Amino acid sequence: MNELFSLREKVAVITGASSGLGADAAKAYALSGAKVALLARRKEKLDDLANELINSGVDAIAVQCDVSNEKSVKEAIETVVKHYGKIDILLNNAGVATKGSVEELSVEDWDKTMNANVKGIYLMSKYTVPHMKKNNYGKIINISSVNAVIADKTPVLARHSYNASKAAVKGLTIGMAASYMQNNITVNAIGPALFESEMTSSTLFTNEKFMNMYTALNPASRAAKKGELNGTIIYLSSDASSYVTGQYILVDGGMAII
């Protein structure tokens, strides 16, 4: 049974790997036996994580990449393939969360959110899929959000561009899944609820009113704990999910069911 979840000799590319969920996922991939390519804009943080993994015996590289920039993405994928010879797994984790309703959002903030959260997945997939097709194998996991299906009516917490971008990730996932299953490439999405990260620790986790409301409404009565996303990520990245594609799996403590 353990072999079903093993990622030995697999090459995993993780975007947004410099901190938070991306860094946690990179460590989970490493523990499952994968070689990891860490992508993010902040090279110094990437280097720190890569060195930590390498010192523990993991085959890891750090590649600076802005997922919203086509040239940057193309060069990053070329670097990974040149180093490892293939890409087996792509975790599209990079993203931003911009607050504001449609009447408050600037066009620049709207574009920033859509570029990072949707265009980034498009570009990373555009330059990764051909390599997966060549090897007739691939696992693509797109990080969406529970906020693709639920929203918050509290004005101060309105994030309309985030809602829209994460819902778009769902649509892109099913389109890609239908096209590439014939190439033995599965494409699935995960919708996390509230996890503590660099993005949320200084905003949502410090908002007492929001946290009280969140814990009251969530059937789990708490935010997610560090590492609780990794099991779903590894499942969708492994051969245990070989016949699973086009799915949107919520990791939300039951938030969306009430």
Rank of each mutant, 00 (worst) to 15 (best):
E3V: 13
F5M: 08
R8H: 15
R8A: 15
T15K: 06
S19V: 03
G20V: 03
L21D: 03
D24C: 01
K35I: 09
V36T: 08
A37W: 04
K45D: 00
L49Q: 01
N51D: 10
V63P: 04
N69E: 09
V73M: 03
T79G: 11
V81S: 08
K82T: 12
N93T: 01
A94H: 04
G95C: 00
G95Q: 02
V96N: 00
G100Y: 02
S101T: 08
V102M: 09
L105S: 02
L105C: 07
W110N: 08
K112T: 10
Y122W: 12
S125L: 03
V129R: 08
V129Y: 03
N136I: 12
G138K: 07
I143H: 04
I143M: 11
S145C: 09
V146A: 11
V149K: 08
D152W: 09
P155A: 11
A158V: 13
H160Q: 14
H160G: 13
N163F: 14
S165A: 14
K166P: 07
K170R: 15
Y180K: 07
N183Q: 14
N184S: 11
I185W: 09
E196L: 06
S197F: 07
T200H: 05
E208L: 12
E208W: 09
F210W: 13
N212R: 14
T215E: 13
A220P: 06
S221F: 15
S221M: 14
A223S: 13
K225M: 00
E228C: 02
L229P: 03
I234Q: 01
L236P: 00
S241H: 05
Y243G: 02
G246K: 03
I249M: 11
D252Q: 07
I258M: 13
I258V: 15
